[in-house]
């Protein structure tokens, strides 16, 4: 493969832009995982649902993709808290394997519901933003990806602000640091869990709307993004907000630079290699985070 400066520049630009989306998707998982110590193995499938909602609004309803955030974010918040209330709350004190299997079961249900009712077709929304490109020398900057990057940064910032500056956020952080102490000072841990789950899911709604102009949707699209989110959260350090953002960029860059250097889809192996390495040697992530 011929390697050129342009090719590398392209990989870096794409990597950073995609990395922003990875970060937003992962921040939601990190919030849920960090607060209630449950890995939601259906996280990717939540994103998939949001992408279908966004897709249908755009393709069938003629909505502007970015306006669909008004629907996807609240819808995912609602779906998140309903699923939490019905399935996750009852097993919050069960052994980890039961919690894992429950969310794995949820992911199977959501994925295959989509397969049964929406078929396996890969759907791509064609929007005004889809072909909006800029050129920096020989490097193409896709407008839709740039918007997604900025939007992700904004959404992540809003989530950060909610967690740092509002009472709700403080309660969530307190509950995640010490459940018993939080209960003692009068925080209703159960409703903070509910909120954290809702917020973590809502961030996926935003991510889906931002992605729909340049990313296809299909019943299995969540698989890939779910895995990416586990990698990013572990790399950034569980519950470490800034770490998660940086890790999102690192994985975005790994994927795109890897793809330009390695044949076929071997870049993915690089991503998992980093993941395994971090899990073995620095389980608290490269930027520190909660001990496991």
């Amino acid at each position: 493969m011929v390697f050129s400066f342009e090719l590398f520049g392209q990989a870096v630009v794409t990597g950073i832009l995609i990395g922003g989306i990875f970060a937003l998707i992962s921040v939601g998982l990190s919030l849920i995982w960090g607060v209630m110590r449950i890995i939601n193995f259906a996280h990717g499938e939540f994103l998939m649902i949001a992408m279908y909602i966004a897709y249908f609004l755009v393709a069938k309803g003629g909505w502007d993709p970015y306006l669909t955030i008004l629907i996807t974010a609240p819808a995912l918040f609602l779906i998140g808290i309903i699923i939490f209330q019905v399935t996750i709350r009852p097993i919050i004190k069960d052994p980890p394997i039961n919690q894992i299997m429950l969310t794995v079961g949820l992911s199977l249900i959501l994925q295959n519901l989509a397969l049964v009712f929406l078929k396996a077709d890969v759907l791509t929304a064609n929007t005004a933003y889809t072909r909006m490109n800029f050129y920096l020398g020989g490097v193409v900057v896709r407008g839709s990806q740039l918007i997604a990057f900025v939007g992700s940064a904004l959404a992540a910032f809003i989530l950060y602000w909610i967690l740092q500056k509002t009472d709700i956020g403080r309660a969530i952080r307190a509950a995640s640091q010490n459940r018993d102490a939080a209960t003692l000072v009068g925080i209703n841990v159960r409703s903070t869990y509910l909120l954290a789950f809702g917020l973590g899911s809502a961030s996926l709604g935003v991510a889906a709307s931002l992605m729909i102009p340049f990313y296809y949707t299909s019943p299995t699209v969540g698989l890939f993004f779910g895995l990416i989110a586990y990698v990013v959260v572990v790399l950034g350090g569980l519950g470490n907000f800034i770490g998660t953002l940086v890790a999102g960029l690192i994985i975005g860059l790994t994927e795109s630079i890897g793809a330009s250097l390695l044949p076929g889809s071997l870049a993915r192996v690089l991503t998992f290699g980093i993941f395994i390495f971090v899990l073995l040697l620095r389980p608290q992530g490269i930027f520190g985070g909660k001990q496991k």
Partner: peptide, 19 residues
């Protein structure tokens, strides 16, 4: 006709079992 119906059943049984 229903590709995925079987796994859908497994998923449902799994969730109900855990609950």
């Amino acid at each position: 006709t229903f590709a995925g119906a079987q796994i859908l059943l497994y998923g449902t049984v799994l969730v109900l079992t855990m609950l």
